[in-house]
Design a protein around this nucleic acid. Structure first.
Lengths: 335, 335
DNA sequence: TTGTATGCGTTATCAG
DNA sequence: CTGATAACGCATACAA
């Protein structure tokens, strides 16, 4: 590899002059600068970020720990984060948590060993160990998506509102004449799930409906669990006429299953869901959803992190964004 | 930050002993080891990957340069790559190329400055500069997806077959009685596009159909271009009865447009496409496609790269995977 | 079995 | 305006 010293030798100057030319960190004679730049060009010098990082104590890299594999919705968030990170001249180091506390710990360890300047993390249902590690290292972290406000009021975080929007979804269903409404929810223990379930219950009560234990199924984020849940729910003596789908994953799985059962919305059964798809408008059934502002979520997370990187004494901030209610045709016509 | 020396001081040994304990790189007295480990524990020592990388000349990080934002299909490939990289104890540094040679160059520069050990890249239509930079640095690169075999026979690469599969798609359409067939293709200049267009032409001729200039539209990877293309094609005196969609992006865009025009397949018009969706089975229209083995693509790319990292004298390898023909219902019933 | 010394490629301080 | 030099935190060759 060609180093600073190589360039210096070619240009007949000291290494420090070359460094200063590159970083524009002190005045240098225009003629000297010309020679140095020529030497850089001719040697093809490219610099060594590792050595620079060691010296400066910063890597200009942000770590991202989330479960992008299991949930396609995270893919969009990743891209938004990537975009705004590079816009601010930060690189992005990716680590997959698989929504599992143990893998999450490994992911964070990996990020830290690479000395990222800060971490954005979509916490699992038990992120204590991982967060402790980050805090011990003394670098900032912002939580995204799953915002456990109550637990960690001192941690920067950004997520969407869940309770009220899901309640609104339920009301929408009721307005279409449904009273037997079931909810298929993903991972229990995760903040978003808990909040959406609460919203479901609230929505029911608000409309004078008594929540039935058999009409709430948790852990429907993989197809096996989902199939079982759907069987139980639809096998009830008095089966539901409408379904609330807890997230993207659940929605895709449920549609596959309903398709097999010949129960395609809105004719077969009514459905509403949380999370939207970019293609939701052009494929059927066109599902009525609460659409998450994935872009704002990613951009907001990066901005929270960079703000704190710039000023660690900032007061903690926890932002909630509102999802957008997108009415399509999965509930039948309005009566 | 707590360093090796801090631990050494606490344990009353030299830094090198601590280092050797951590890396198991030479025998140390069990009692000494115990003391050292205790010191590591009590200090919360976490190590510094940057310093280690500088010393060892490796970062154990792989760079990934692709346009994951503009094409959702890449998202799945990214995840496959991430999975197999971490399985081999490599981290993944992400860089977005936006399918643009200039941004691609920046992306690669970023990757290199972070001193990644190797690069996986989905080349733009003019990757010369970026590849030159990588090769100058002397680190291995494997090309993924767009495999310009002819141009760079010495570069490791992995992609899918395009020509024959698209020809097969055309034949499928012909078997359903179509003779007026149009193709909506994405970025011209990119290897996959060129090959798929060739496949389209081959398929036509093979079935005794003369390719019509007006029935081939390029650059349909954004909605504006796509809308224009669709208008032109459908506005023809003798409009096509079937459409070949060049990739994922084109498919989603086209379906949105066709939906607006009331031309939903298979009733409105027949369609086949390249690339599949995870949800393709449960949403309508259920499109007949050539499904890319995204998982094998990602795993294969990592394995090519690691092999070369292990032995740089290996003969260049260029792998072509076969897409899977998935027949659904977007062409009407078989006659 | 352990310690000392050196250098990886930079940046920044201190002289000149 | 420029050069010499000392860290940054670690791994390793060489001594002991």
């Amino acid at each position: 590899m060609v180093t600073l010293n190589d360039v210096a030798r070619v240009a007949n100057v000291s290494a420090s002059t070359v460094s200063h030319v590159i970083n524009k960190t002190r005045r240098v004679n225009p003629e000297t600068e010309r020679v140095v730049r020529a030497a850089i060009e001719s040697t093809g010098y490219a610099g060594d970020g590792i050595a620079r990082s060691l010296r400066k104590g910063r890597t200009d890299t942000l770590g991202l720990a989330m479960s992008a594999i299991s949930n396609p919705y995270f893919g969009e968030v990743v891209h938004a984060i990537e975009r705004s990170a590079t816009a601010e001249d930060y690189s992005l180091l990716l680590a997959e948590t698989h929504d599992d506390p143990e893998r999450e710990l490994r992911a964070v360890r990996d990020l830290l060993s690479h000395r990222v300047d800060g971490v954005i993390m979509a916490p699992s249902n038990d992120p204590g160990a991982a967060l402790a590690l980050i805090e011990r290292r003394g670098i900032p972290v912002v939580l995204i998506d799953r915002v456990p406000v109550e637990d960690r009021p001192h941690t920067d975080a950004i997520g969407v509102s869940n309770r009220e929007p899901v309640a609104q979804l339920v009301t929408h269903l009721v307005e279409h004449g449904h009273t037997r409404i079931a909810m298929l929810a993903p991972q229990p223990g995760v903040a978003t799930t808990e909040e959406r379930v609460e919203g479901f219950l609230t929505g029911l009560r608000r409309n004078g409906i008594d929540p039935q234990p058999g009409l709430l199924e948790l852990g429907c984020h993989n197809s096996d669990a989902l199939e079982g849940a759907l069987s139980r729910v639809l096998g009830l003596d008095d089966p539901p006429t409408a379904l609330v789908l807890g997230n993207n994953q659940v929605t895709i799985g449920a549609m596959a299953d309903l398709h097999l059962r010949g129960l395609v919305p809105p004719a077969g059964i009514a459905t509403v869901s949380f999370d939207d798809f970019p293609w939701a408008d052009s494929f059927h059934p066109r599902i009525t959803t609460m659409s998450q502002p994935t872009d704002d979520l990613g951009v907001g997370a990066v901005s929270l992190l960079l703000d704190r990187l710039a000023d660690s004494s900032l007061a903690p901030r926890q932002r909630r964004l509102d999802p957008e209610f997108v009415v399509r045709e999965s509930c039948g016509c309005v009566r």
